[in-house]
Every structure is written in structure tokens, then in C-alpha cells.
Simulated scan of single mutants.
Amino acid sequence: QEETVEPDPDAPPVALVFKVLMENGRKLSFLRLYAGRIREGDSLRNVAQKSDDRVGRIFRLHADRREQLESASAGEIAAVVGLRAAHTGETYAARGRELALESIGACAPVLTLALEPRNADEGKTLDEALARYVEEDPTIQVSLDDDSGTRMLSGMGELHLDVLLERMRREYGISPRAGQPQVVLRETVRKEAEAEAVFDKELGRERHQGAVSLRVVPLPRHAGNQVRVGDFLPADPQEARKLLPPALLQAALDGVRDGLQSGELTGWPVVDVAVTLTNVERREGLTTAPGCHMAAGQALREALSRAAPVALEPIMKVEINVPDDFLGPAISLLNTAGGKVEELENHAGRKLLRGTAPLRRLFGFSTSLRSATQGRAGLMLTFDRFDLP
């Protein structure tokens, strides 16, 4: 249900966290207050995480200067110390008025960079820096390759990652070895397919067994994933529980959802598919939840491989602001990068060119554009969607 939040300073407080900054190990949360008033020592509820935090000091920021406040009220922006669980886009409210304000959406990263510390000491500092940047920026993701010890840093583009590397050098005095940027992919399927799998192995001195059949169907682009149960169970809930206990059915569903995180073609997450469980067989005394989980994952991998899997690349919106004399070279460069011109308009005596292009073809594009236009062109790249190039 939607509810309008009136900017009443006397109402219970409701605030949105729009930025988080880590300073000397302490979290500074930037709040926009939409209603109510907060004071030092107040207890606020993190609506997303269902946890309570206590407001510490409150500041009003003036560029590089801070003014400490006793309170902040509706309509104001304040920086607050003490909200330990805060993340960008989360709502803090008074207990009893747990409204969730419209969150700040964060796009999925589209570019990944492998980082390797030069020594063990630098590795600890690198992990500390990456943990801080992830806390501050929701568009950053970090993972660790257990086999090689490489840190995989994912962001929104070349400039985004370059800025992070420069911040590491300035703020932490480290310069880890960086690999070549790799484009983040997604995977989907082009046709319907079915598969079944039987898992029957002894794990940890216990025998686990499961048998699962399922069907994979492609969905329209950007529809997301659907995981559902077919009509193989009786309509009566009690009869369905007797035939297949809920724990076994849930294990099979979890096996499918986990399997969608890594496709057969690329190893990247699978999107825009509908997976329907057509049967989960139960053998009295043999079938176990881990067995159903493993069988579902095996059946999904087999079905995906039969369903003509295809890789989806990040497609970027490209906006070029260029003088009339250099319009031709700018269009030529965009076409060379596999881009499509969608709109062209006059803007303050210059040309504004809008289009789309696959990200993997845009490496070094800004440098080439500056060279071709004598540095007089402006470029803006924005993530649009994952799609076929």
C-alpha cells in the first residue's frame, strides 16, 4: 500500500539514507528527513533490516566544514553518526511508523577487474579498502577467488574502476596489480526444454537420494526469472503434504534458484527464464532434502544446455555532445564500436548524438573520441540493459 508522507516536523520521524561514508572506521549516514524530528540519542528503526540503531551526533555539512546540531527536522538533510546498519536506499523511521520510502535503485555492475596484492601486508590493506568502498557504493561488488586469491572488483565502467584504483593509491598507499577489465555477462535461453535427473550418492556417511524433473521456458527480455511448481501434486494441501513433504519440495525449489546463479554457457547468472518443476519423486526412507536439492540442480543444468543458451551483454546508452564540424567522425566512431544512432538534435550550437552500443566494444572509446574531435566532444555512458549485441 502507498501512503503520502506529509512534511510535518511534529509527526514521527521518517528519513531516507541516500549516502554512506566511512571515516576513521565510523559510518557517517547522510539522511533526508521527510517527516518528524531526530535528536541525539533517539532510537530509530531500520525498516529494511528490522533492526534498531541509536542516533549519535548530528551534523549539517558546509563543504569541508561541519556544524553540529542538536536536532534535525522534516525537509532537512543531515549527516548522522551511529546508524551502524545503514545502507544506501534504506529507510529509518520511528517504531510504530515503519514506512518504507521509495528506495534508490542501484544498477548491476557491468565490468570486472582482477586485483592481486603485491605482498601479504598489502593484501590486508586491499581487503580493508575494498570493504570500505563496498559499504559506501552500492554499485560495487567484490568477490574472492579462493583458488588464486585474486580479488574480483566489479563496477559500472572503466572510469568507475580507475577512480577506485586511484583512491586506493591516495588513501591507502597501495597499488595492486590489475588485470584487463572483463565485461559482466548474463545468460538466457532461446527455446523450451525438459530434463530429469536422479541423485543417489553417499555423502558424509549418509546416503542422499532425489529425483527431479523440470521444464525451462524462455521469457520476454527483462521479465526476470520465475520458479514454480507444476500440477503434479494434488490440489488438496493435506494430500499434497502426504505425497511430498514441504521440506523436500522447498529443497528442490532452492536447488533450481541456486542453479540459476551460474549458467552452463558462460557461468554468469541466468535471467528471463521460467522453470517449472514437473515432478519431484519421493522414495520412502531414501529421499532426502539434500538429494532433492542436488537433483534439481543437475536437472536444471541439463535443461539449460538443451534450451539453446545464449549470452547477453551489457548495452550502454551513449550520449555525445560534439561541435558540428566533428559530427561525422563521432558517428563513424560509434558505428565502428557496433553502436546505433537513435537520436540527433541541436543543442546550444552543437550536436547532441544519442544511441546505444555494447560495452565490450567501448573500451578505449573515450580516448578515440577525444583524438578524433581535438578534445572538443563530451561523452556520457549509462548502463541500459543486458541484451544480445
Rank of each mutant, 00 (worst) to 15 (best):
T4E: 15
E6Y: 09
D10F: 08
A11M: 08
K19C: 08
Y34V: 02
G36H: 13
E40D: 05
E40W: 02
E40L: 08
G41K: 03
D42W: 14
V47W: 11
A48G: 08
D52N: 06
D53V: 03
G56S: 06
R57L: 05
A63H: 11
R66L: 11
R66C: 05
R66G: 02
A72F: 10
A74D: 13
A79Y: 04
V80R: 00
L83G: 10
E90R: 02
A93S: 10
A100R: 14
G105D: 10
A108P: 01
R118Q: 12
G123N: 13
L126I: 14
D127I: 04
R132W: 04
V134N: 04
E136H: 01
P138Q: 05
L144W: 09
L144R: 15
D145P: 13
D147F: 13
G149P: 13
G149E: 15
G157R: 01
H160V: 00
L161S: 01
L164W: 12
L164D: 09
L165I: 10
R169E: 15
I174N: 05
S175D: 12
G179I: 11
Q182K: 08
E192N: 01
V198A: 03
L203C: 02
R207N: 07
H208G: 02
G210F: 08
G210L: 09
S213E: 11
L214V: 01
V216A: 12
V217W: 14
V217E: 15
H222G: 00
R228M: 14
F232L: 02
L233P: 01
A235I: 02
D236T: 00
Q238M: 07
E239S: 09
L249H: 03
G259S: 03
T266H: 14
G267R: 08
D272H: 03
V273W: 12
E281G: 04
G285V: 09
L286T: 00
T287I: 00
T287G: 00
A299R: 06
R306H: 07
P309C: 09
A311C: 11
P314R: 03
P323M: 06
A330W: 02
N335A: 12
A337W: 03
A337R: 02
E345K: 08
L352Y: 00
T356P: 10
P358E: 10
F363S: 02
S366A: 11
T367R: 09
A372M: 07
A377P: 08
G378C: 10
D384R: 09
R385C: 00
R385D: 01
D387W: 14
L388S: 09
